[in-house]
Design a binder for these strands. Structure first.
Lengths: 125, 125
DNA sequence: TAAGGTACTGACATGAAAGTAAGTGACCTC
DNA sequence: GAGGTCACTTACTTTCATGTCAGTACCTTA
């Protein structure tokens, strides 16, 4: 094993503690690691999408959860909502700069989960 | 259903769809993005730790949740449990190779959340 | 005339996740 | 022999995330 294989050290604030309860970072972490949050962010990292596309792509999501998750992500400044006043309605969702930043970190994680899923779940007798 | 049963390999499958409901990768993702799972993995990335140390560092966790989370992570092959038959008992927890791999992906994410938390939460009038 | 697409919202139900609190066993110290 | 330490387990309760379903407003296609 090489030294370079070791994980990068955590910032001292995080390392010691792990980090405080009730800290905003916990809330943010909860949002971005939520069941549907990850999926939405990932889906949008592929490009702008409409409500109905997201609904299809985040397989299994209910309309209520889609609305709720999008609202949270929008409030967090990760997703942009662009409603056009046409009939029938057309609403496009896209990542903000911050959202794109986040998705670049999320992608390796999800890719890893995807690659290791069989070994992890399969290896449990 | 196994991930390896899916038609296309990696980028395409994740990109398109986002990925299937009921897929093992969703389960794995749920484990590693769980509220306490992240904190435990992160804490252990700093080095081996005992039960009581983890309890302190993952601030706010109950004993029940600590036990449950550790069990899940152990089953997933991410955490190693080393119990010494001494009195009083001493149990050391550490990351497996797979766990260390994962933590290298988790750290940038958590660091990002930490760095952006104030801007995200604060920016919501 | 009816059915379907589009992007939602709101009321209600439920089930899983999480918290609370107490108990356990083997020993050691006071 | 009372109380403390350590690493848990178990039973019970509460909270919250999520699901289900119905409704809205307007237009298009069959």
């Amino acid at each position: 094993m090489k030294v370079s294989d070791l994980p990068a050290p955590l910032p001292a604030t995080i390392a010691d503690g792990v980090f405080p309860a009730g800290c905003p970072s916990r809330t943010v972490l909860d949002h971005i690691t939520s069941k549907w949050g990850v999926l939405i962010l990932l889906s949008l990292s592929e490009g702008d999408q409409r409500w109905s596309e997201l609904r299809r792509r985040a397989e299994g999501i209910s309309e209520k959860m889609l609305a709720q998750t999008l609202k949270t992500l929008e409030r967090d400044g990760l997703v942009r909502r662009d409603a056009q006043p046409v009939i029938p309605p057309r609403v496009d969702y896209s990542l903000t700069e911050r959202g794109r930043e986040l998705s670049t970190l999320l992608i390796p994680l999800v890719t890893w989960a995807f690659d290791n899923a069989d070994a992890i779940i399969g290896g449990q007798n």
